[in-house]
Design a protein around this nucleic acid. Sequence first.
DNA 1: TCGTTATGCGAGTAATTGCTCGGATTCGCT
DNA 2: AGCGAATCCGAGCAATTACTCGCATAACGA
Lengths: 220, 220
Amino acid sequence: MPRRSTVPLAPRRRPRQARAQETTRAILEAAARVFAAHGYAAGTTNRIAEAAGVSIGSLYEYFPNKDAILVALMEQHIAEGETVMRALLAQPRPGKLRTVVRTFVQAMIALHAHAPRLHRVLFEEAPVPRPVWRTLAAVERRMVDDVERMLAVQPDVRVRDHALAARLVVQVIEDLTHRFVLHPDATVDAERYVDEVTTLVTSYLTRLDGREEEVVRPRP
Amino acid sequence: MPRRSTVPLAPRRRPRQARAQETTRAILEAAARVFAAHGYAAGTTNRIAEAAGVSIGSLYEYFPNKDAILVALMEQHIAEGETVMRALLAQPRPGKLRTVVRTFVQAMIALHAHAPRLHRVLFEEAPVPRPVWRTLAAVERRMVDDVERMLAVQPDVRVRDHALAARLVVQVIEDLTHRFVLHPDATVDAERYVDEVTTLVTSYLTRLDGREEEVVRPRP
DNA sequence: TCGTTATGCGAGTAATTGCTCGGATTCGCT
DNA sequence: AGCGAATCCGAGCAATTACTCGCATAACGA
């Protein structure tokens, strides 16, 4: 294969007519299918073009190289994900802490469950390009900020450092649900898992700071 | 490149003499360097051989294909990691819960910090082969069992389902430290991070079940 | 010393695959 | 209808790279 241009060139053509837009759409959709089915390395551009019902030439009219297709797919999924998740955290009438956390966990699971195979290929197998890392970091940061705002409003929250707590909460929920969906363990069902993760997070948040407080069993 | 044999052949030669063992050692060590420096895809077998000061022919005497090198490296790192971590959890005189958890967290960070670049390539970029997944799962399972035993002995532990709790704890610590080391955020220093993760885990474990209990501030 | 075995070598092979380019086809518009 | 621009096509190029094979050399055992 020819050396990939170090600086990925901009696509030579921008889709102006409707049929060209349909072409790019078909390419992305096909790429999702092909990557999910064959993995990143075996997801060749020729295969993608074929799956899209488009010639390899057309593919390269709209994507400067293979990586660009990957990036487009990733950015698309990230954007969709953020829309869903942040809408959730921005609800005007926040419920009880535990309820809010629970909803968050459930939404994150739903998000990952949408297309698990593709997710796995995109974010575990493919080499995530620099710019995508940046996007990802930015999204997470915004989500952390949202959570931090949420923490400020919840009366039960007792952790001191809201900024750090928000970060940990987002990461924990992200990682645990990620695992649960992408590398499932038959011994635990979804409801129970959601419940326990919710407990984990809630316990942490309602703590003083994990040392100085005292826990008392309520009398029966 | 020729089609990789679907069934990876056993190495044609097993190192019998000392000098052959040195060769394989050099190959693995070079592979670690090359993968860390160039990533998985660009870590070509020729480059590895060259870095090892060994001819490409020799390399293929002891490793049937590129994947086998990757697998050997992974298994090696996993084994080393398990040794360290389990030794820690098997201590005869367990301290206070918080102390045990803290040690665990610190050890996990140390583990990942040992060769972060290589770790990232091995476990985030390279396509982890099936057998390695199995090894990884087995190791994690053993670690979860160890933690579960530890929970049974600690008086402060109040979560009900020790099995599930142990799993969550191991995963959380693994994921959070992984992130902290491999994708650091300048705004938090290590000590603070260890502290907070410890708090997170401890809070969860000393909870009743996250709902029915009551937290009371001790009087000043 | 001498035969046998183990080890090392590296130029060359066979695929694979990202990507180009010249020309055919279709669309939008007057 | 007719023309320029946009779109599409796909054979084939060029680079890459995992891997082979015939042979040279070193170690071992007698």
